[in-house]
Structures are given as structure tokens and as C-alpha cells.
Design a protein around this nucleic acid. Structure first.
Lengths: 70, 70
DNA sequence: TTGTAAAGTGCTTTTTACGGCACTTTTAAG
DNA sequence: CTTAAAAGTGCCGTAAAAAGCACTTTACAA
């Protein structure tokens, strides 16, 4: 996944869970400004920031060797 | 995966491929200092930095909903 | 043991993520 | 249309990531 897809995935997941940016910011401990900037595609979050958000959304970041096929 | 595991995975993958930090730095466009700091567990890399490294190592970052089981 | 390559660290500057505040724009319900 | 909530944006200070340089430490082969 590229950065853009990761960001998009976060946004979609948040929407599915019907959580506002404000609530997610509070629950994750990430600043509202940071979250807004991120979701509007203008961010390059640190791993820690990403983890905090993923945690609250019931998601997880993983790193794996690329497979050949689909 | 937590930050620590992700970092560890990078380090291990680099070693398996028998690539030096210096070479990885050159190939990925990430500064050698940044890479050293990262692998020695003192970093909080940005998503872009992580992607650059993963790319060269033939790896990929993904974000997915946590599953219940193993 | 010695020599060399790789890895790790302190110091530094530059860049940029983070996050607060206030404001605008968009969206959706009445 | 009105209005309220959510999302997006500009400004800005602080903190920290990025990265270069020089040096030390570690690992390993001769």
C-alpha cells in the first residue's frame, strides 16, 4: 500500500465506524489539526501517530515481503 | 505490528538480503544517519521514510482491520 | 592480535510533523 | 433556505525527524 491508500483506508474506516475526526482525535490522543491535515492528504505522519489512530480504529499496521501475484 | 516489530523486521530483512546500511541508504534515498538511528531503535520514522526503505527491501506496508483470531 | 568494514553515537542545522486557535467551506437535516 | 455539525485551511510556535560530519565501538577475517 502507498501512503495515499493508507490515508484513504483510515478515512474510510473512520467513516464506517461513524466516528468524527474530533472523537477520533480525542480517543487516539492525536491532535485534531494533525488528523484533519492527514485525512485531507497533506500529511506525512510518523509511525507513532499512525499507530495511535490505527489502534482506535481497530486496525493494525504491518510490514511484509511483497508477494509476486495478486 | 508495533513500531518495534516493524523496525526489527526491516533490520532483519536488510541482513537477509546482505545489504549494508550504507547501501540501503543510497538505494532508498534515506539518509544514513536516519537509517542508523532507526535500526538502533531510536527513531519514529515518517510514513514516507518507511516506504522508501520498504520499497528497496521488496517489502510493503499495509493497514488492515484487526482480526479476532491468531 | 591486527586491520577493516559495518554499525552505533554525539553534535549540529534544517526541515517538517504536531497541535492549538480561529475562520471558512461543505454537508446534511429541519 | 436556514442552521448546526463536520470537515478543511491559514497562521504560528514547539518539538522532533531528517541528515551530514566526525568519532567510537563492534564484528569478523587474515
Amino acid at each position: 500500500m502507498h501512503s495515499i491508500e493508507i490515508i484513504q483506508t483510515i478515512k474510510e474506516r473512520r467513516e464506517v465506524l461513524q466516528v468524527t475526526q474530533e472523537t477520533l482525535a480525542e480517543l487516539s490522543g492525536v491532535g485534531l489539526r494533525t488528523l484533519k491535515q492527514l485525512e485531507s492528504g497533506k500529511g506525512n505522519p510518523t509511525l507513532v501517530t499512525l499507530q495511535k489512530i490505527a489502534d482506535v480504529l481497530g486496525m493494525e499496521i504491518c510490514l511484509k515481503v511483497k508477494t509476486i501475484g495478486t
